[in-house]
Amino acid sequence: MKNTSTLGLFLAVIITLSVVSCNTSDPVFDAPVPGKMQLLFDNVAGSADLKLNASTYQNAAGESFTVTKFNYFISNLRLRKEDGSEYVVPQNSSYFLIEEEKPASQTITLNNVPAGKYTGLTFLIGVDSLRSMADVSQRTGALDPGTNNGMYWDWNSGYIFMKLEGISAVAPAAQNNTFFYHIGGFGRSTVKINNLRTVTLSFRNDVVNVQMDATPALRITTDALKIFNGPTQLSIAQHPSVMFDTFSTNVANNYVQMFSYDRVQAN
């Protein structure tokens, strides 16, 4: 008898716990079921689509070039709601490497986005200092310092935030006419440069509605020409190779302007 009542009590506790622990997915007790949002990064060069090893583009300095590689990190995403509040994408799901040579990498899906109406987006170009210094087991996938397609500096611990490489007749013959822009530096300890940049985009007059059964897809245009044409006019002839040096902050200040919101497409 005593045994049975103990078990009965135990069962009651379990059932209570079950209701409490699962209530995030229980529409009766909580907010509406979360949905998803997709971000499609469309890399372009001015008015033309960006094509690796193919099309020739021209920067504001009048230099013609082709692009052989274009990669960048997007992280720490925050979605702004109509009421001004923000949804912060959880840290572990908030690092993305967009690579022009890998079309699948250009679509990122944010899961578990609270249902609601969204009007804007904020993200970091690069990888924040905390994650950059985190234990190596916390840095897998695109953040794996050993296998992330050359987006890590092993001699000066840190991620390359943006990598643009190409060929131009004005680049030095000694470099085989290639140019390199590898921009990184998260400003650890006494390091002088910090190239982390924050981008905030408004969805203009669009109100993006996330629901359980509606996954809106936002197109974001990334204009690689802005890497050259910005507050500092970047000339390939003058700067055929910019990596970890003080000039790199000028390039970061240019590319912070390369993103723009294009449109939303309902799925």
Binding site: I14, S18, C22, N92, F96, L143
Partner: peptide, 20 residues
């Protein structure tokens, strides 16, 4: 019941793109 609960709760978790 506990097993079912574990399964039910797990299915609501989303896969993580960075830390698979």
């Amino acid at each position: 019941f506990l097993f079912g609960l574990a399964v039910a709760c797990q299915s609501s978790k989303e896969p993580d793109p960075v830390v698979p």
